[in-house]
């Protein structure tokens, strides 16, 4: 039995190419009837299109690629973007993909859900048989182990999620926390939405245009605050997200100092995503104030990515053990008996 994977990904092809080969409604049937695969599964995400298949005879890459095209399309030179992994390499590749080691953002976990969905669809249509069942079940186990035994998923890798993670690390529970959005830009809206999802219920929005403040407040479940009152809000709020278009800093040490006098025992987390910055950098030196601007948030996101990359070798070690085990089973007499039984089955039309 030939176990193989044919596909394209962000490593080898542009998005236009990936779109062209994204498959179609009849792909399961086509792969088995036209390409001659005994079992076939299509995994499509925004970054990859991959076919995992088991077949009694070797199936050329061009034939698989052709099956992925919609009727009438010609293959062209783009077929060169396809890679192919056979047997042990195929197993290793799937385990890497499911664990997020092959993803654009190393360690992202969305791919595992997408792989599970693809597997469920293939099981339902009858396209995934005992080989792919065993392969994918093992891949899900491996992905879980890589996630729990390494730090591959640790740390946020986007500016918004870094800000929310930091806020959580300072305050823990968000339910009783008060947040002030200064400026109603898109970036602060995204961060506010993320905070709302994590449980923040007291959101205040202050903007030069009160209408815009009201509109954003409605969107994020908050309430508008007049622009002339925003400074006094600093006495109460726990998190301040600032993203105005002011050319000079709105918040300085001198302005903030008297406002924080009565709240020394409560930290203030300031997220300044404005360029030029809304908050003077020396505010970070104040007791109990943690100021993060766009550069520092981006730098942490980069650090997290670098830390994730360092974890790749630990993930590869876990994967290597499972690849050996799976390959041992694949070449065992039990698997050969299964193969003979499959070959005796009438082929589908």
């Amino acid at each position: 039995m030939h176990l193989f994977c044919v596909g394209i990904s962000h490593h080898t092809a542009k998005v236009e190419t990936r779109e062209r080969f994204a498959g179609h409604a009849e792909i399961d049937r086509t792969l088995r009837a036209e390409a001659g695969c005994s079992e076939a599964l299509l995994l499509t995400t925004c970054n990859r299109v991959e076919v995992y298949a088991a077949a009694a005879e070797a199936v050329p890459t061009e034939r698989i690629a052709h099956c992925l095209l919609t009727a009438g399309d010609s293959l062209g030179e783009e077929v060169e973007a396809f890679y192919r992994h056979e047997a042990q390499q195929c197993v290793q590749h799937l385990f890497r993909v499911a664990s997020g080691l092959d993803s654009m953002v190393i360690g992202e976990t969305e791919i595992l859900g997408q792989a599970k969905k693809a597997y469920a669809a293939a099981r339902e249509s009858g396209a995934a048989g005992p080989y792919l069942h065993r392969l994918f079940q093992r891949a899900f186990r491996v992905a879980k182990q890589v996630r729990t035994r390494t730090e591959i998923t640790r740390g946020a890798v986007s500016v918004g999620s870094v800000a929310v993670d930091l806020a959580e690390q300072i305050f823990g529970n968000f339910e009783t926390r008060k947040v002030l959005l200064l400026g109603a830009g898109e970036a602060s809206e995204r961060t506010a939405r993320a905070l709302f999802k994590r449980g923040v219920r007291d959101l205040r929005v202050s903007n030069r245009s009160l209408e815009r403040a009201e509109a954003l407040a409605t969107l994020v479940g908050g309430r508008p605050v007049a622009m002339e009152n925003w400074e006094s809000q600093c006495r109460e709020v726990d998190i301040l997200i600032s993203s105005t278009a002011s050319p000079t800093p709105l918040l300085t040490r001198e302005k903030l100092s008297p406002l924080l006098h009565d709240r020394l025992d409560r930290p203030l987390f300031i997220i300044d995503i404005a360029v030029p910055r809304d908050v003077a950098p020396d505010v970070n030196e104040m007791e109990g104030v943690y100021l993060y601007d766009i550069d520092s948030l981006q730098s942490i996101a980069q650090q997290s990515l670098a830390q994730r990359r360092q974890q790749i070798s630990a993930g590869e070690e876990i994967i290597a053990g499972h690849v050996d085990e799976f390959s041992g089973w694949f070449t065992s007499p039990r698997a050969r008996v299964m193969q003979s039984a499959l070959e005796l089955r009438p082929s589908e039309s």
Partner: peptide, 22 residues
């Protein structure tokens, strides 16, 4: 933890600390 937050240098231990307020 406070020092790491102020310096903006978060090591692998940082996210295992309990929240600062807790």
């Amino acid at each position: 933890q406070e020092r790491q937050l102020k310096q903006r240098e978060l090591n692998s231990m940082f996210y295992h600390f309990p929240p600062l307020t807790d």
